[in-house]
């Protein structure tokens, strides 16, 4: 019986028929999706923190309005994704609980600090850029609610990357000090950004299953290479450099070769030892705890109003 269901399920996937929440699905598919979607949602939410750091210090009103709109978008992305995960039978509070207890992960990139205004440019260009590279194929992922959330997100993402590049472009045409600031931001964000695609293919044992279920459409290494190829060209417009002396066009592969990634650093940050891990989690927990009275008050108010309505009706 289970075997038949599994075959029907895989047939649907192979025919590009989307899986919807109430359709039969293997338990492992459900769990994989819950983990991946909630992790993605947490990343959007925690991702607001490094950029939020600069909202009050944006160099002018235009930049401030743009950054505010971008950070607000990220909050929306978190919400779309939490909602998609909820259709799989996990509650919102459970997901928050997993984030706050450290059981659930979020993208390690957000454990790096934003030291200067140029970091906001580098985040938009590289971090949102890498996210887009990951997310565009997810618009065709096999689970309906996840795919629909990704379509909405991708539509909103494109301005994120462009505003970041514009910040760097402006700095790159500025004074020597501004140019140095832009280069320094790129130097610090480049390697963590290319680590965003996750471990190399031979180190990610779940990729095969995820590809078969069409949760994932490309492997980590395929996406990373695509991203590097694009950035290696875009950097020329800035007249700045990517901090990798081994970055070189390879005629025979038709791609850029690149240097060794420091996976030690990657795993250190994943395990909680990045520069800002503690601070990020503390901030989220504090916001949750200090917001408790708001959640309770809203419930009390709604309850009271409901009672008043029944009294008038009677």
């Amino acid at each position: 019986m289970e075997k038949d269901f599994e075959k029907i399920f895989q047939d649907k996937i192979d025919q590009e028929i989307k899986i919807e929440p109430r359709d039969w699905m293997p338990e492992k598919y459900r769990q994989t999706l819950i983990r991946q979607i909630s992790q993605h949602a947490h990343s959007e939410i925690v991702g607001m923190l490094p950029e939020g750091n600069w909202i009050t210090r944006a160099p002018n009103l235009r930049r401030k309005a743009i950054l505010l709109a971008k950070v607000q978008d990220e909050a929306g992305h978190g919400l779309y994704l939490y909602s998609a995960a909820e259709t799989l039978g996990i509650s919102r509070d459970e997901m928050y609980e997993q984030l706050h207890s450290g059981k659930a992960k979020y993208s390690s990139i957000f454990n790096y600090p934003t030291l200067t205004w140029a970091d906001i440019g580098a985040i938009g260009w590289l971090v949102d850029g890498a996210a887009i590279m990951n997310q565009v194929p997810l618009c065709r992922t096999s689970f309906g609610p996840y795919a629909r959330a990704m379509v909405r997100i991708c539509k909103e993402e494109s301005f994120h990357q462009r505003q970041g590049f514009e910040i760097l472009l402006t700095l790159s045409k500025g004074t020597e000090a501004q140019k140095r600031m832009a280069q320094d931001a790129i130097d610090r964000w480049w390697w963590p950004s290319i680590m965003m695609f996750g471990p190399t293919d031979d180190e990610s044992p779940n990729t095969l299953q995820s590809m078969q279920w069409k949760i994932k459409r490309f492997t980590n290494d395929e996406l990373r290479q695509k991203f590097i190829d694009v950035c290696a060209e875009q950097i020329k417009v800035l007249g700045l450099v990517i901090p990798d002396k081994d970055l070189k066009w390879n005629e025979s592969t038709g791609h850029y070769d690149f240097g060794k990634i420091n996976w030690d650093e990657f795993w250190q940050v994943v395990q909680g030892n990045g520069p800002c891990n503690k601070q990020r989690l503390e901030t989220r927990k504090k916001a949750w705890e200090e917001g408790a009275w708001v959640r309770e008050a809203a419930n009390a108010y709604a309850e009271k109003r409901k009672q008043r309505q029944t009294v008038t009706a009677a």
Binding site: S83, R295, R305
Partner: peptide, 12 residues
């Protein structure tokens, strides 16, 4: 239909 959200009441 565009999605879902949490709220304490209809107005919110």
């Amino acid at each position: 239909h565009v999605g879902s959200l949490h709220a304490a009441d209809a107005q919110m």
